[in-house]
Design a protein around this nucleic acid. Structure first.
Lengths: 243, 243
DNA sequence: ACCTGAACACCGTTCAAGT
DNA sequence: ACCTGAACACCGTTCAAGT
């Protein structure tokens, strides 16, 4: 059902006539949309503006996408497709491999902070989003962790990375509207009811902040370590499920 | 500066004349806004609809809030104010106390899933959001963890909880539009390119999913354990910063 | 098959005006 | 001090029409 008009990634019979008419492609539209977000923020993407950027009537996009929501799904796919875990080195320890994966996962998301913001509110049960998950599953199952535990692990792991990055981006866009030289710190401390948050103030007032990346890496390492610990102990206790 | 008109939480000289005119309160407006979100989703909150719910001209709200964004900040404050960590039991181990805190943190957020969605995209450097953070800091500093490490710990911890819950809510609203009897699983599996995700399919097809709450609790425990491990080792290595 | 353009029902916000 | 109501500049989307 569902009007297969919108299913195909339109390679039409236009292509072989040279590049006479670039016309409109699903991919071209999505890239333009992403570009608008990257440049001016996710909230300034409108169908009308998109049409302008593509030198086309705003409504032309509706031939290729049923609505704006579908277009945004396309943008999400494009961004999530940028996650590349192929640098994985199977000779390393599992812990190390997962840490590296977390690192590149984050890096890919940080390439398009504005677009990542919209993922907070959109479905992530999509091929490009699940490809890294499938890959991580392979690593975990390879170590003898049970199906049940691997699924839990991978869910927790992927949410950790996405959630962490999402909120890092939030903080980013909060603070770079003010003094961005001192990372995230004084900007916050100043606007805070000093007497109700004595500890926060004490802890922030002399460069205690280790930086976003270091913080992420520490968190990732701790989580991975903790999960491996827990599951490793469980498996040797012998409660494997269906192999 | 900043027009103190919008600063006070308007207790005006109206109150002592009995409840003759309830008129409009900042709090009343915010509660109404939250209610609309709870009932019909965050995206169906509009100034016009809010006015209707309050039996008032839509523009009346603009006397109490400079714009919709400020109103949403109010909603966020209301929801974050619902986080209550006072059930903390200092006689327990730190690990246990933090796990309990994570549990109630999550619980409070899950009370208003729709409103939590908007926090993904709004500043969280706000009193109600930081109050739990301040409290957690107290726990951590009390164990002798350094300032630097406590700050990192608390940042990671708070982001973990928020991010986790945020993405849990996303998944929730994705899946309850379809078959909601089997938790999160088949609904996903069906719409998935079966051949590209063999492991995901294998792992999901017989009830391997342990449930959202269990998953969260496991993740939280693993993270907390991992962080305590790392920092405990560090402190005894002697690199304390200013006490 | 692919794009246009007018039209519709909504937004958030401003501002002068009412009480 | 607090609320109203018209008006403005935007939205996303539908639909009949053009090529």
């Amino acid at each position: 059902m569902e009007s297969k008009k919108h299913q195909n990634f339109n390679r039409r019979h236009v292509r072989e006539s040279g590049s006479a008419r670039p016309s409109l492609t699903r991919e071209g539209i999505v890239r333009a949309a992403l570009k608008i977000m990257d440049e001016d923020g996710y909230e300034s993407l409108s169908m009308r503006r998109l049409g302008a950027k593509l030198n086309v009537d705003p409504m032309a996009v509706y031939y290729h996408f049923p609505n704006k929501s579908a277009l945004l799904d396309g943008v999400v796919e494009l961004v999530m497709g940028g996650i590349d875990l192929s640098c994985d080195d199977p000779t390393q320890t599992v812990e190390e491999r997962l840490c590296v994966a977390a690192h590149y996962y984050r890096e890919a998301l940080l390439a398009h902070p504005q677009a990542v913001q919209i993922t907070a509110v959109r479905s992530l049960n999509t091929p490009a989003s699940l490809r890294p998950v499938e890959y991580l599953l392979e690593i975990l199952l390879g170590t003898g962790i049970s199906h049940t535990d691997s699924l839990a692990f991978v869910n927790i792991f992927a949410r950790f990375v996405r959630g962490m990055v999402l909120l890092e981006i939030r903080q980013m866009t909060d603070t770079d509207s003010l003094a961005q030289e001192d990372c995230t710190l004084k900007s916050l401390g100043d606007s805070l009811p000093t007497d109700e948050f004595p500890l926060l103030h004490k802890v922030m007032e002399n460069g205690c902040f280790i930086g976003e990346e270091a913080e992420f890496e520490r968190g990732a390492r701790a989580l991975i370590h903790g999960l491996l610990d827990e599951f490793a102990n469980k498996e040797q206790a012998g409660d494997q499920d269906v192999k």
